Computed example of a mutant assay.
Amino acid sequence: MELSEKVAIARKRKGLTQEQLADLANVTVRTIQRIERGESIPRAFTIKTLAKALGTNFEDLANNETQNDSSPNVSAVVQNNFNPDNERHILKILCLSCFSYLAIPLVHFIIPIYLLKHSGSSNTLTINLARVVIRRQIYWAIVHSFLLLLTLAYNFINAVYFEASYLLHYLWPFFTMYILNAFIIMHSLIRINNTTYSPVFSV
């Protein structure tokens, strides 16, 4: 029996959906779908994670199905299913979702994290670039909060010790950081457009 059939049968036997199995195994839904369709041969680590989530043994699930990433079968699957335009589209949507900071600042990075988790992409470059975009948004939220606190501290000290000779308006750091983040997101979009893709997957 093929690995794809074993995973599908074991999942249905436990009454799990593909989404539930993906959450238990800490992989994407797309990864589960590709494995069950026989479009991808996962690494040993992924098989071990699936075996644990399905409550079965690694040996029973693998049964000589594990292959090196350099094997002809894996290469053929990657070449047939890899689409650079789809990967760029995923990253562009993720980048554009970062503009949610205009409505929900400081926690807006949760949206691109959610999109990455449910994107279904297993391409290493896509995942790495998405993580860079998300990290930049987290850094922005931290710096934004720090500048507002710094402004508060400056105004407090100025009011208490210098009789409020000059108070800094909170809108200055606020709008400065907002404009800066727009440039950060646009820079990420330009980087994505200029990225050269190769079919390297991390299943």
Rank of each mutant, 00 (worst) to 15 (best):
A25K: 06
N158W: 02
L102E: 02
L171P: 02
N81I: 11
V74K: 14
K92R: 15
L115M: 07
T124A: 11
F82L: 01
S145H: 08
H187S: 14
N86I: 00
H108S: 05
D23E: 15
V203G: 14
N64M: 06
Y197K: 00
F174M: 12
M186K: 12
I110P: 03
T196C: 07
Q79P: 03
I104M: 01
T49F: 07
F99L: 09
I41N: 07
S100D: 01
S198E: 12
Y170M: 06
A22P: 04
V77E: 12
S70N: 10
K12I: 05
I192A: 02
Y114G: 07
S202P: 01
K48Y: 09
Q33D: 08
S40C: 12
E2T: 15
E36W: 00
Q79K: 11
I142K: 04
P199H: 02
N83Y: 03
K92D: 13
L50K: 05
R43P: 03
N83A: 00
S122M: 14
F162G: 03
G38N: 04
P199C: 01
I9P: 04
L3S: 05
L115G: 04
D23R: 13
Y197N: 01
L152K: 05
Y154R: 09
S4Y: 10
F82I: 00
V143Q: 04
Y139L: 13
N73E: 13
Y139H: 09
L96F: 09
V27L: 08
V160I: 15
L3G: 01
S198G: 06
N155C: 07
H118L: 07
K92N: 15
S165M: 07
N63F: 04
L102Y: 07
L3W: 03
N128W: 07
D85I: 13
L116K: 08
G15Y: 03
N57F: 15
D60V: 01
N57C: 15
L125W: 08
L106A: 08
A10P: 09
R191M: 10
Q67E: 15
N68I: 07
G55W: 00
H108V: 00
F82N: 00
A164Y: 00
E87W: 00
W140M: 01
R136L: 06
Y170I: 10
Y197M: 06
N80A: 10
L61G: 04
G15I: 04
V143L: 11
Q67F: 05
L171A: 11
L106F: 13
P105K: 02
L116Y: 05
